[in-house]
Amino acid sequence: MRRSERLLYAANGVDLRVVDVALTDGEHVERPFIRTPRAAGAVVVRGGRVLLRWHHHLVTDTWGWEIPLGEIGPGEQPEAAAARHVEEQTGWRPGPLLPLIRIRPAGDVADCDHLVFVAHQAAPGAPADDVEGGRAEWLPMLRIQQLIDEQAITSATTLAALLHFLADLLQTRTPH
């Protein structure tokens, strides 16, 4: 049970805190904890391909394929945020978005809450923001496992969303 928490550092909407937690035996321990804004994104598919972006993480200096995802603005609906991030990050405007999965990728160390939608169509939109030198591409769904095996997809949110989408697809195509 969480008893108290104290702020250590806050910047850019992210807080680093220390939480005092009571264990089942009554002992107390302090655990680091990160508070983050909620985020929304989408798995956008059409014709057996998925829209992913090749993204550079500045802090870790790593690259990887990811679904478009970003912060939900104040007063913004998650669906609207997901559509906005798809267009800003890929240059494609998604069709109707349907809920796919809610992911908390950081387990017990952060309150990351990612709401992921799925769209089965997209149209060209405004040019993508190319802030970090990445690019967006329509990749064959049949390559997803290979990209995971090659560690070209390592984002927990992207992994969970794509694997959930593929499991749903397999379930609908497999007779019971």
Score class of each variant (00 low, 15 high):
Thr24Phe: 07
Ile103Leu: 14
Gln89Lys: 12
Asn12Gly: 11
Gln89Asn: 04
Leu159Lys: 09
Leu58Ile: 10
Asn12Leu: 09
Ile153Asp: 03
Val116His: 04
Pro99Cys: 06
Ala40Arg: 00
Met141Pro: 04
Pro78His: 03
Ala152Asp: 10
Met1Val: 13
Phe117Ala: 05
Gln146Trp: 04
Ile101Pro: 00
Trp92Val: 08
Leu163Cys: 14
Leu115Tyr: 01
Thr157Cys: 07
Asp129Asn: 11
Glu27Lys: 11
Ile72Ala: 00
Arg3Ile: 15
Thr90Lys: 06
Val18Tyr: 01
Leu16Ala: 15
Ala106Ser: 06
Val18Glu: 13
Pro96Leu: 05
Leu98Gly: 02
Leu98Ser: 15
Pro175Gln: 05
Leu52Tyr: 08
Pro74Gly: 09
Val43Asp: 00
Phe33Ala: 07
Arg3Glu: 14
Arg35Met: 13
His120Val: 00
Pro96Ala: 15
Glu66Asn: 13
Pro74Trp: 08
Asp149Phe: 08
Val19Ile: 02
Gln145Arg: 11
Pro78Asn: 03
Glu88Ile: 02
Arg173Ala: 15
Leu159Arg: 10
His56Cys: 04
Glu5Gln: 06
Gln151Asp: 15
Ala11Asp: 12
Glu137Tyr: 03
Gln89Phe: 02
Leu169His: 05
His176Phe: 12
Gln151Leu: 13
Asp15Gln: 12
Gln145Met: 08
Glu88Ser: 08
Pro32Glu: 03
Arg38Leu: 07
Leu8Asp: 06
Thr90Gly: 05
Val109Ile: 13
Leu69Phe: 10
Arg6Glu: 12
His120Lys: 03
Glu27Thr: 13
Ala161Phe: 02
Gly70Pro: 08
Ala167Pro: 01
Pro127Ala: 01
Ala82Ile: 08
Ala123Asp: 15
Ala83Leu: 05
Thr36Ala: 15
Leu163Val: 09
Leu16Asp: 12
Pro175Tyr: 05
Val50Tyr: 07
Gly107Leu: 14
Val14Cys: 08
Ala83Met: 07
Asp15Ser: 14
Asp108Val: 13
Glu76Ala: 06
Ile67Asn: 00
Met141Gln: 12
Glu150Trp: 07
Ala42Met: 02
Ala119Asp: 04
Arg46Tyr: 13
Trp65Lys: 06
Leu8Gln: 07
Pro78Cys: 01
Ala82Val: 09
Ile34Ala: 10
Leu163Tyr: 06
Val29Asn: 05
Arg135Thr: 11
Arg53Ala: 02
Leu166Gln: 11
Leu51Gln: 11
Gly125Ser: 04
Thr172Phe: 09
Ile101Ala: 15
Val45His: 04
Leu23Asp: 14
Glu76Cys: 06
Pro78Gln: 00
Ala160Phe: 03
Thr157Pro: 06
Ala152Val: 00
Gly134Asp: 04
Glu137Gln: 10
Pro124Asp: 06
